[in-house]
């Protein structure tokens, strides 16, 4: 279980997170929704330990993450998929997959990965960035599955993808859930969010202001969409 309480964060002098609270139970998919610049990426990067100028409680299964460097947090089983996918151009597709250490026996082996993501097998020897945007997204997710992460932090995995690929990401998320993994998903697309997630947090100006169930999101869709400016 991941608990975030009173998370604040700064870039130099300017404070961008003013109090983010969220709770994700094992096996849940929870989304973080909010406008551009609300602080979603900063929240994820703070949990991951990449963003250091922060204050607040970050607890993963009883372990305090706040003071740990990213490599230690990753080894606790946190898989990070950054907003630009973070595929290395200097590494082949295969190398991109096997770069992170395997941190748990639940990590998917390469055969399982390649069966789940056939395009990756076909292009295993090519540079990672030769893949299409959608394939790069698959690769970024596959990479943390192979690692054996139990908590996935996915920053806008559907951004810029064609509808068919968005559906594919949805399928992958359901498969991840079937494996009882936990996901914190940053998502702007509300209609998509309710099809994959169990719960939602709305973040406004660096604060989580609402905690919403799927029913509430559907009931208040119009209001939320207007709020998100879509």
């Amino acid at each position: 279980m991941l608990q975030v309480e009173g998370l604040q964060a700064w870039y130099g002098e300017s404070q961008v997170l003013h109090g983010v609270d969220l709770e994700i139970h094992d096996g849940q998919i929870v989304t973080l929704i909010g406008r551009n610049g609300a602080g979603k990426t900063t929240t994820i990067r703070s949990i991951m330990g990449i963003h250091r100028q922060k204050r607040g409680r970050l607890i993963l299964d009883g372990v305090d993450l706040a003071a740990l460097p990213p490599q230690r947090i990753a080894r606790l089983g946190v898989g990070y998929v950054q907003d630009d996918r973070g595929i290395y151009s200097g590494l082949t597709v295969h190398e991109n997959l096997v770069l992170p250490p395997v941190v748990s026996p639940d990590g998917w082996d390469l055969d399982k990965i390649y069966d789940a993501f056939p395009p990756l097998r076909a292009r295993a020897r090519q540079p990672g960035t030769k893949l299409s945007g959608g394939e790069q997204q698959m690769l970024a997710i596959a990479r943390v599955l192979r690692m054996g992460a139990k908590l996935l932090l996915l920053d806008e995995p559907t951004e810029g993808l064609a509808p068919i690929l968005v559906r594919r990401v949805g399928e992958i998320l359901r498969e991840i859930k079937a494996h009882h993994l936990t996901v914190l998903l940053v998502e702007q697309n509300l209609r998509f969010a309710v099809t994959v997630a169990d719960h939602h947090y709305l973040i406004v100006n660096g604060r989580t202001v609402e905690s919403l169930s799927n029913e509430e999101v559907e009931r208040r869709e119009q209001e939320l969409l207007e709020y998100l400016g879509v």
């Binding site: 990449i50 490599q71 990070y80 290395y88 770069l99 992170p100």
Partner: peptide, 21 residues
């Protein structure tokens, strides 16, 4: 060598993927 290439390209991400750069 792979770690060196990864860290050369993006040290921050490489740490976040569990490697003690």
């Amino acid at each position: 060598g792979m770690i060196v290439r990864a860290a050369t390209e993006n040290p921050g991400l490489t740490r976040a993927l569990g490697i003690d750069v």
